[in-house]
């Protein structure tokens, strides 16, 4: 036990939190996103040239996958050991995952691949 929590719950949630931190780091590495004009944010940032743009999208995609993994691990642990303190800890971690995931999903959508017009239509 670590305080009121089981060691296993702390380890799982701690690991999940670590994944969220790595996800945020990958998001930073992915660089800036493009914003539509008049969004109330800073002036519109240009999309980096390809393949830089799509490399950034790749990093954001992996980051979002890490968030999903973090949430999955926490949920699996709660299902395996549904004790009250564990659920409370999991709820906090899942909330952080939800916030991070929502932000990352938005940034992923705002990160165009930036590939110039392809030769053929997507099939």
């Amino acid at each position: 036990m670590i305080g009121p929590f089981t060691a296993e719950a702390v380890l799982v949630d701690g690991y999940a939190a670590g994944l969220l931190v790595v996800a945020r780091a990958l998001d930073r590495l992915a660089g800036r996103v493009a914003r539509p004009p008049g969004s109330g944010e800073e002036s519109r940032l240009e999309t980096p040239p390809w393949p830089h743009s799509e490399a950034g999208r790749f990093h954001r995609g992996i980051a979002l996958a890490l968030v999903v993994m973090a949430a999955t691990l926490v949920i699996a642990e709660v299902v395996r050991r549904p004790d009250r303190t564990g659920i409370a800890l999991a709820a906090a971690t899942l909330a952080a995952a939800a916030v991070t995931g929502r932000r990352l999903a938005g940034r992923l959508r705002a990160t165009p691949a930036g590939f110039p017009e392809p030769e053929c239509q997507d099939k």
């Binding site: 040239p49 390809w50 393949p51 830089h52 490399a55 110039p116 017009e117 030769e119």
Partner: peptide, 15 residues
């Protein structure tokens, strides 16, 4: 990853 960027911008055919 920047290698192709400038050339892509100036190429008359897609990468």
């Amino acid at each position: 990853v920047r290698l192709g960027a400038r050339q892509q911008a100036e190429s008359r055919t897609p990468f």
